[in-house]
Amino acid sequence: MGLKFSVVTVVYNAEAAISKTMESVLAQTYKPYEYIIIDGKSTDNSLQIISQFKSKFEEKGIELKIISEKDTGIYNAMNKGIKYAAGDFISFLNAGDWYEKDALQNINALYQKESFDLTYGGLHYINPNGTITNKMSKDDSKGIVTSRHWNHPSMFLKTELYKKYGFNEKFRAYADFDLYLKMRKKGVKICVSDNIITNFVADGVSTNTNMKKVLGRAKEKYRAYRGNGYSALYWFESYGWEVFKAIYFSIRS
């Protein structure tokens, strides 16, 4: 029995990018059960563009749910997506990002070989200057747990777990990593995919190189570690990685 995937895209004023994201969902070799758009009351043409896709999703037999209302931030919008999801697994695909054509097929095939509660795969990381870096996922079950080996844009988590725990909206940049750490501590079964799943465009909060923002993200990441029972030594991973990213994006911009 194949998996039912709920794919969720959070949108706010993404008229230049949303079509590519939606086309990649339509192009999947293994179609999702449903596609959920959470729009934060966009003031551009995002909603009009999204609405033009309704017939295409109907033809493919994919339920398209469109919710447009104000939110208090990206994780608030993501939690709304979780609320509306009815599939077996949820994946978040940001507006502007896109799936590889066989993304869902590969995740389903992996599950048929070895069932899991959570999985994540590799990314094509689209740098600000347009170059592409492959960011492959790794199994952190032995050794240091780090966001360097994990990719939220390619993560699939059981819907029942997303609904039970959701995202902590007190975080601005690392609620997704906080949830991942929580799942590890809960002992859910994790299986890592060797495939490239998502094409991720590096922009937004996580790539801001302003030092105040960099240190704020590092502090938040460290809070996620400590809140989930990890050692104070993870201070070095938290701050070191954020500073490294800031240097990296300064070079790649």
Rank of each mutant, 00 (worst) to 15 (best):
Y84H: 10
R184A: 09
N134K: 15
G81S: 11
V214Q: 01
F89D: 09
K170L: 14
F177D: 07
Y84S: 12
S206P: 01
K83M: 13
K65W: 05
P153W: 05
K170E: 12
N45G: 04
T131N: 00
K31H: 06
N195Y: 09
Y162E: 04
A16W: 12
K213C: 07
G73D: 05
Y248M: 13
S55L: 08
C191V: 09
Y225K: 02
A103Y: 01
A175M: 07
L93M: 01
I251R: 04
D203F: 12
S253G: 13
F53E: 02
E59M: 05
K4M: 14
D178F: 05
A224E: 07
F171M: 11
V8D: 03
V7W: 06
Y75S: 00
I62E: 13
S68N: 06
K41F: 03
G187F: 08
S137R: 00
A175H: 05
K41Y: 03
K135S: 13
P32T: 10
I247P: 06
N79M: 03
G81Y: 07
I90H: 03
D44H: 01
L179Q: 10
Y222Q: 10
Q52T: 10
Y225R: 03
V188R: 11
I197A: 07
G166M: 04
V145K: 05
E220T: 08
A218L: 02
S46Y: 02
